[in-house]
């Protein structure tokens, strides 16, 4: 409940923030929403020398859809900004579905989308959603900006590939190849619980054919599970019961759950399979209705 001592800076620009990170050689941490970092400070699981609070930097709280359909989410976009936003619901239904399931309503007013992706919690919702959506992170360091695709960004539990002197300034989701549909289901025992298992699905549809498919999982492995290979079995196909069930089985096989007090590995696989089936069946039904 009482953090260790640390230094604190609240720079006004990303460049200044990067310079402070650079000067502390890996002993500084970026503070954005703080909804994961501050609890770790309170429990003294984290004790950085310096906190670089980016909340005073103008222009980082945004989310928008570009003219070409690319979605951009700024480093200070809060979870709640993505809830109940019609533009988000239309452009990225997977995100709209996941937003209300992140933590709890109070935490969502403060916690950030990008911060959550960077936190790389194996049970985190946003890293899974970004992976399914084939997004990338824009990192800014002393030498400027670079893009890091999700598949190269989260590499382990609470591990991302940002350099110590880089800040994730934006999350980018590419424009869909067709009409984007998707959903997010999470088994949690109560609001704010970590996921026992959750499934993020994002499909680009051309007519009733799947043009692009992404699936990622949380809570069922030592890191966010990228099941995009399994999902690719849907590409070029229709959402028939048969196709759905074979992809669900492939995704369940891609999970790497461990038995713990939330359930056995087999149980978690069963949840993954059921959720994939439910999401895809739901998408098939609604695309039928739309047609």
């Amino acid at each position: 409940m009482y953090p260790s001592r640390f230094g604190y800076e609240s720079p006004k620009t990303v460049e200044e923030a990067v310079a402070i990170l650079d000067a502390h050689g890996g002993e500084a941490k970026v503070l954005a929403g703080g909804q994961s970092l501050v609890p770790m400070l309170k429990l003294r699981f984290a004790a950085p020398e310096m906190l670089v609070d980016i909340n005073s930097i103008e222009g980082l709280r945004y989310h928008r859809v570009d003219a070409d359909g690319t979605i951009r989410i700024g480093a200070l976009c809060r979870h709640e900004d993505l809830e109940e936003d019609d533009a988000v619901a239309k452009a990225v239904p997977t995100i709209a579905a996941a937003a209300p399931l992140v933590a709890d309503p109070i935490v969502r007013t403060r916690g950030t989308f990008v911060g959550s992706v960077c936190h790389a919690d194996p049970q985190g919702d946003w890293a899974a959603a970004m992976t399914a959506l084939g997004g990338h992170i824009v990192a800014q360091g002393p030498k400027g900006k670079r893009d890091i695709p999700m598949k190269d960004f989260v590499i382990g539990p609470f591990q991302n590939t940002l350099a110590f002197n880089e800040i994730a300034v934006e999350a980018v989701i590419p424009a869909p190849k067709g009409v984007r549909v998707g959903n997010y289901l999470k088994l949690e025992r109560r609001v704010g619980d970590f996921a026992t298992a959750s499934v993020a699905v994002a499909l680009d549809m051309v007519g009733d054919t799947v043009a692009n498919a992404g699936i990622a999982l949380a809570g069922v492995g030592g890191r966010t599970i990228n099941a995009n290979d399994a999902a690719s079995g849907l590409i070029g196909k229709k959402l028939t019961a048969e196709n759905i069930s074979s992809v669900a089985a492939a995704v369940a096989a891609a999970a790497e759950p461990r038995t713990d007090h939330r359930g056995s590995a087999d149980y978690k696989r069963q949840i993954v399979k059921t959720f994939v089936e439910r999401i895809l069946t739901g998408l098939a039904n609604s695309s039928q209705k739309a047609a």
């Binding site: 409940m1 604190y8 609240s10 503070l31 703080g34 909804q35 501050v38 609890p39 309170k42 906190l51 609070d53 909340n55 709640e80 309503p105 109070i106 935490v107 007013t109 403060r110």
Partner: peptide
């Protein structure tokens, strides 16, 4: 510890006073 910060609810145990 919920309070309103700029009108929105936050958990004040999860924000530093300096912020």
């Amino acid at each position: 510890c919920t309070i309103l910060f700029e009108g929105r609810p936050i958990k004040s145990c999860t924000m530093l006073a300096v912020q």
